[in-house]
């Protein structure tokens, strides 16, 4: 039998963990989404100058585990004068890591719009800026929503790793409850359910956005 009362007693820790996971994920994802856009834009705006550095960055993000990145930021940071609280190291880690993936998603979106559509726009006097806003971005938005949703889900799940650099997130607090009560199943099931709820929310949001964009 599951001991629901135990969870009720530990509700303070669970809610604190949920709150920390939520805001760190939210900020981390915002950093990832916007830094990714900047990287993709730099690369598209001046391929000669930025292609190589951005490509390197992307490769590092793809090639290095998030946990190592978090260790470097949190434990390695102070030795280069960068002292971050565990939570902020989590935000920065998730942000930097996710940005590499989003940069690629955006770039793919831009690349899949035929060049001719822009030439057609330029030939009737539509400025490059207007073409970007009215022709490229609306079409790109449609294309990037499904892979972006997917990437956000991955980031939310991987955020469990910040527990290892001592952030009191859902995962770490669940472990704390386990250590205090010697009950393993209930705390982990409870946080699993909460992760699943968060991810379901992201997925639904992405799906709604996808539908909305498809209609226009």
């Amino acid at each position: 039998m599951l001991d629901i009362a135990l969870l009720w007693e530990a509700r303070g820790l669970i809610l604190q963990g949920l709150w920390n996971t939520l805001w760190i994920c939210l900020l981390g994802c915002l950093v990832a989404l916007s830094l990714g856009l900047v990287l993709a834009a730099l690369r598209l705006a001046n391929p000669r100058l930025f292609s190589y550095p951005v490509a390197c960055y992307v490769e590092i993000c793809r090639g290095v585990p998030l946990l190592i990145l978090l260790f470097l930021l949190y434990y390695g940071g102070p030795s280069i004068g960068l002292t971050l609280s565990a939570s902020i190291a989590g935000v920065v880690g998730i942000g930097l890591y996710g940005a590499g993936y989003f940069a690629e998603i955006y770039r793919g979106g831009f690349k899949s719009i035929p060049k001719g559509q822009l030439e057609a726009a330029r030939m009737i006097g539509i400025s490059p800026w207007h073409a970007l806003i009215r022709i490229q971005i609306p079409q790109m938005a449609r294309l990037i929503v499904p892979p972006s949703t997917n990437q956000l889900i991955i980031l939310v799940k991987e955020s469990a790793l910040i527990s290892i650099i001592s952030v009191d997130d859902l995962t770490k607090n669940a472990t704390t409850i386990v250590n205090q009560t010697f009950q393993v199943i209930e705390p982990y099931l409870a946080v699993a359910l909460l992760y699943w709820l968060m991810i379901e929310l992201v997925a639904r949001g992405g799906y709604a956005l996808e539908k909305r964009l498809a209609n226009r």
Binding site: Q117, A120, I135
Partner: peptide
């Protein structure tokens, strides 16, 4: 040749 209409 390929029209290049904006599909959206």
């Amino acid at each position: 040749q390929h029209f290049h209409l904006w599909p959206h």
